[in-house]
Design a protein around this nucleic acid. Sequence first.
DNA 1: GGTATCCGAAACTGATCAGTTCCGTATATA
DNA 2: TATATACGGAACTGATCAGTTTCGGATACC
Lengths: 218, 218
Amino acid sequence: MPLDLIDSDPASAPDRPERPGRPGRRRDHSRDPEILDAAIEVLAEEGYDGMTMEMVAARAKAGKATLYRRWPSKGELVVDAVACMKSRDLDLDNLPDTGTLRGDLVAMIKPRTLEEADRKMQVMAGLMSVLSRSPELVEAINAAIVAPRAEVNRRLIERAIARGEISADIDVNVLALVAPSMTAYRLLVTQRPVDREYLLSIIDGIVLPAVGLRAPRA
Amino acid sequence: MPLDLIDSDPASAPDRPERPGRPGRRRDHSRDPEILDAAIEVLAEEGYDGMTMEMVAARAKAGKATLYRRWPSKGELVVDAVACMKSRDLDLDNLPDTGTLRGDLVAMIKPRTLEEADRKMQVMAGLMSVLSRSPELVEAINAAIVAPRAEVNRRLIERAIARGEISADIDVNVLALVAPSMTAYRLLVTQRPVDREYLLSIIDGIVLPAVGLRAPRA
DNA sequence: GGTATCCGAAACTGATCAGTTCCGTATATA
DNA sequence: TATATACGGAACTGATCAGTTTCGGATACC
């Protein structure tokens, strides 16, 4: 089970420039996105150990040699793929603002978001057994999957505090993790779906009561 | 990545009889516990794919052939090992009874319990990528790891309701999952330790406020 | 058109590992 | 003491897969 994700080059940015011209010139990295997307797909379906470089190449309609021309090993391709999985479903600069904490939290429940969360959790599950051996993977996952979701909740809660809706005497850091933790647990551990109903039961059964608010009468 | 945990025999009980006499007689299964324990250890350290039958055999000071005399495949050995990992740290018939919900919850925080939970989460992480392909593994994990912990919380909460400490108008099923979910998330996803302090912040920051109780002034 | 470059495909190497077979030995019963 | 059984160890097979090499074809530039 070799992993050697040493990746000793701290200057390697996870962000890649968009394709400059249309076709290739010099070092052409224009096909990187397709390959990284393919890697994420295979990762979600098969897990790290089940993923083979041939699967990724086939899915991206590329040759295996092409993968190795860009990434020195399977491990580094995976780290890169995860790092480039940045949230397209969450936009921190464009959060809902309904005037109430419950309204904001409920407004975050969108099919698109649920779907993205599910996909990310699949990827996470596939990488779980490898995490303890790869700090850079932990970091990549944290930045791409974990942190954004907690940050959304933190902002919504802080806004509710700022407008005086809820007490400032609240452990925001822990509270912001309730929903992400419980959805991850449900998806990963108990293998049951996270749907609107489950999220509402977390919001109305835990989060709102914990800050002294009540759900509207049904 | 073959798994074929078909295990089509529904009569195979996960409980094995204790060694009947001291040494072997006829079918001698007296070494099964050592082998299963070894499997759990390797599983926790290496994960399902990283675990080899040779590792398990070596750890149990057994021959690889001996493993295959007892279990038809790696997959079935693992299911059996998980099923036999029954909680020795949690005793549902002997729960703390301090008179308050907070007292009971805090009394559950014991070094022995924390350690066991950590070990079980390591095993869980190692099996995560395989879960989606093995319903019997999901079932075994659920019975051995997931259900007992939620059941403890459920009983403590229901007792608090029965004695009138908290309102009966509470979503017990969801509330009982808060602590297990958040500890699993912290251990598995963010790779940070679950210590007494973190558990107290869950109890005092989420669970108690959610049922309308306050933590004692520090 | 000529040339240089990157591409995908495919064959190849070496290592690892699930599962099998065989063998010499230890032990318990009789 | 003789016999039967299960043991641990070691050698073996077959499949899979990371990573490498080669090659013929496409495309961009001059």
